[in-house]
């Protein structure tokens, strides 16, 4: 349970961090909260030769709404979201979701962008980002590029972030006043990774759903946004029957992954339930 030997550098700015990642290339690895990486290193499943510690790069520590987006810098910890970070539905949504991530001490260290870069298929922030259509700002010595969530997640622990890239920021679209959200997750114990979870956001005006976002996580190699079902929701009045039907439709759409805690059949059952419950909560 001790990591293989490694070197350690601690850049003091975003620019230095980008430079350090470029210098060390394949040998280097960024460390943010360390809540996933350190465990992998202790098991010697990850063996970076050089750790590039982002925690000294204080210019990555920001969280602010700007231009219709919530800009989340790479040193923003999960715990920052315990209370709504922006006025309006997005802050409420994030506060509702964050309590499902791990345990209190882990949330004090783990970062939002670290979760995205790590890309565990059952990460809540990955589901939020995919479902709401986040943009990721990826920086390297050549400059920065903005990557849409749809292109960002490439598979289990795999993203658009390359070995010399820094995931500098994530941007979530702010939600207008008529949006409400619902989130439901099923895990074996409090704080465990979800066996299945769903995030729903509905814009409801005059008793009718005007726009919808619906995603499912923990059931495939990456978070899934169910755009076909979003389209079906639009124009409908929220009802128990509608949401139950959506749960069944979601179940039929997805071919889930299997592991020792959940077979494909079981995950299908869970998909139906989590989608139904997330939508129901959003409309209530």
């Amino acid at each position: 349970m001790k990591p293989a030997p490694f070197e350690y550098v601690r850049p003091s700015s975003r620019a230095e961090a980008v430079a350090a990642l470029a210098t060390h290339g394949d040998d280097g690895k960024a460390i943010a909260g360390g809540q996933s990486l350190v465990a992998a290193m202790n098991f010697r499943l990850a063996r970076p030769a050089v750790l590039v510690d982002l925690n000294g790069a204080t210019d990555l520590d920001y969280l602010r709404p700007e231009g219709g987006k919530l800009r989340i810098g790479a040193l923003t910890r999960h715990a920052a979201f315990h209370r709504p970070v922006v006025e309006g539905p997005l802050g409420v949504l994030l506060a509702r979701v964050v309590r499902n991530i791990a345990h209190y001490p882990i949330r004090q260290r783990g970062t939002f962008t670290g979760s995205l870069a790590h890309a565990d298929p059952a990460s809540e922030w990955c589901l939020v980002s995919r479902t709401l259509g986040a943009e990721m700002v990826i920086a390297n010595t050549g400059g920065e590029r903005v990557c849409a969530a749809a292109d960002f997640f490439r598979g289990t622990f795999t993203t658009a972030v390359g070995t010399e890239d820094l995931l500098a920021e994530a941007r979530l679209p702010l939600l207008g006043p008529n949006w409400r959200s619902g989130f439901f997750e099923f895990s074996r114990r409090a704080g465990d990774f979800a066996l299945a979870m769903s995030l729903a956001a509905l814009e409801i005006e005059g008793g009718v759903i005007r726009a919808a976002r619906l995603g499912v996580g923990g059931v495939a190699d990456r978070p899934l946004r169910l755009e076909a079902l979003e389209a079906q929701l639009v124009g409908q009045a929220p009802s128990a029957a509608l949401f139950a039907g959506m749960g069944e439709a979601a179940r039929d759409l997805i071919t889930p992954t299997e592991d020792i805690h959940a077979s494909a059949d079981y995950r299908r059952d869970l998909i139906r339930t989590v989608v139904n419950r997330a939508l129901t909560q959003a409309a209530s």
Binding site: F43, R189, A190, D192, I260, H261
Partner: peptide
Amino acid sequence: LFEELVYDETGNLLTASLADYLPPTIAE
């Protein structure tokens, strides 16, 4: 309800960490 050690058919232990072997916590 919670704890189970699982071997695969080759005798490899699939639950060799606390991520997969689940003692109840105070919340349960």
